[in-house]
Amino acid sequence: MTEKLLIDNVSKTFNGKISLDTTSLSVSDGELITIVGPSGCGKSTLFNIISGVLQPTEGNVIINDKDVTNVPGNVGYMMQKDLLLPWKSTLENILTGVSLTRKPTKEDLELAISMAQEYGLGDYLDNFPHSMSGGMRQRAAFLRTLMFDRDVLLLDEPFGALDSQTRLSMQEWLLKVWAEQRRTVLFVTHDVEEAVFLADRVVVMTPRPGRIEKIIDIDLPRPRTRTILTDQKFVEYKRMILNLIYGGGKE
């Protein structure tokens, strides 16, 4: 497979404190990578660097063989908070990614409406965010990221605030969207189960200083459904990753 994204010896130091130690990662086109690790291990910092918002202390970010270090606008980014604008309707919020750089066309509008309808927001196109539930807001934020049409998506704990039921259906939904649209996805989560369920590869990070501890290939068949959650191999992956994070390896 061709290489889509290369994180090349990237590191970040805040006020003399290393938040992200030298990190390298190569991501293939259409791959779904999940990143797990305890709070403060530099996951968001890494995303901020990839998205071009934060300048790395050292290293480069390469997308489609082009050096895009410090160049924003090349990836779709969804942060931990939904960050919907309170004065915009769902539809206007979904279109924000477009309208920040150009005037939305009729096609943009129609695409946004049909996506919203397909993904359960059809009845809430005109609603302000404050009148919607957390799950719907999260969906709107996700659609905004999709509408900002880039082939690399950075998702920072997109489902972290959702209840477990909504979360599972959102995960299956994400796999569906990913399978349909073949985007390259980097997905941060605290939930090891979620990480294994979604991923081609799981990147395990550890703190002080933040770094990649191990990268694990998840060799499970696709398409995956929730029945896989109790599969022997699945449970084995889960245990392995939990041990890496919590250091419970001594048995």
């Binding site: 071009g52 604008l85 990614g97 920040l100 750089t101």
Partner: peptide, 18 residues
């Protein structure tokens, strides 16, 4: 929210747009 400013930047918006 600083993150909202960062997100707008990440989506390629210039300062005036933001």
């Amino acid at each position: 929210d600083v993150d909202m400013l960062n997100l707008s930047k990440a989506m390629g918006a210039n300062r005036w747009r933001i």
